[in-house]
Design a protein around this nucleic acid. Sequence first.
DNA 1: TAAATATATTAATAATATCTTAATAATTTC
DNA 2: GAAATTATTAAGATATTATTAATATATTTA
Lengths: 232, 232
Amino acid sequence: MYNILVCDDDKEIVKAIEIYLNKEGYNVIKAFDGEEALKVLKNNTIHLIILDIMMPKKDGIETLNEIRKDKSIPVIMLSAKSEDEDKINGLNLGADDYITKPFNPLELIARVNSGIRRYTKLGNFETNENKNVFKTGELIIDDNLKTVKVDEQEVKLTPTEYNILKFLTKNKGKVYSIEQIYENVWEDEAYAAENIIAVHIRHIREKIEINPKEPKYLKVIWGIGYKIENLD
Amino acid sequence: MYNILVCDDDKEIVKAIEIYLNKEGYNVIKAFDGEEALKVLKNNTIHLIILDIMMPKKDGIETLNEIRKDKSIPVIMLSAKSEDEDKINGLNLGADDYITKPFNPLELIARVNSGIRRYTKLGNFETNENKNVFKTGELIIDDNLKTVKVDEQEVKLTPTEYNILKFLTKNKGKVYSIEQIYENVWEDEAYAAENIIAVHIRHIREKIEINPKEPKYLKVIWGIGYKIENLD
DNA sequence: TAAATATATTAATAATATCTTAATAATTTC
DNA sequence: GAAATTATTAAGATATTATTAATATATTTA
């Protein structure tokens, strides 16, 4: 029996979801705002969360960030169709999936099944060894040991450099704007971040690249941002 | 192994369906009236139901209503051709699909496969990774990664080129005037945009087309505008 | 705690990529 | 073939990122 936490300030929607999920054999635990959801999470074994974005007290995005600080269970975000999809995407919120309202019940169920399947199988049993190890090509970041290696050689980064590199490597392949990098690494509003990031990027390149002028790992996507190349 | 409940009072038809579905690797459980079907459902894990409408004791529609009270598995209704299709449709019975008798075995199998896929996997629904990927023929734009590939080969576009190509590919097949392209990509009034667009179009063609003089993807519709050919 | 050291930010400027403009050529359509 | 439309080319303008060095802030160590 799997427990699914459904959190939305619209009680009708929560009720409807509960009915669909009960039919599927899932047990539903309800919450109506982010704070309540976090409480439920603390006191119950939850296998999957369905989380509305627009909510009072603590919205879905804040709540998700809190959850992600110490949990990796699957989260499906709910959003009204009107909310700009690009926006949701840009948030880069660490959700596993999202559905726009109004949703198709079969789709909801399919996504829940898929999330549960992913979570219960392999995925969750990542070994301690590689849990916090991020790599691309010959660049390896071990977040347990806080070490960075390039071609087997350890490289010393400052905390900020390390955090930027970890963030980008964790999400290798994806391009992040200067603002997104700043906000993710500093956990603060980005203001006049261009230069700050540029300087750090240069320092990182000096340390991890053979030829910083022609970076192999840390690439600029002109007009958009930076990314760590996915070489695996 | 998926279990499919087939319910029809015509034993010949049930037998025939069983043969078809067995060949496809499905396990068939049989019932010959609505009440029997409900009993079977109670005692077995059923993944899909094929249900005849005209049956003794409890007809298909009543049975379906019962089923829908506590289950949301896919149901394919069977009906004789004589029964008015519109009527069946209008019943709005919460069936996922229906087939008229006499049916084409290939169609039956296709619908069963599709039902199973939709129910168990994400099958027809867009997966998260798919959500922002636009393609036509061998041209693939991944807006998550901001990459463009032609024939598996990555191609580098400037931001403006990328935005134009994304806009047209997202709406492949449709023709957009120079003004429309400008307004959509620049999010500004188009003024003297002809030349600007023309130059960008040329650059894009140079990058994505084998022979820019005879473009395969980015075509001009003389006097109207440009489009990305729909090759799928 | 004060000095030493390491790290982060700011400022100024350079380098480079990209966009737009202009002038002209090539096509298409009637 | 003429008018309208699109294509091409190259150069000047603009925007974005890179670099360097100096200053500020934080952390460590004596």
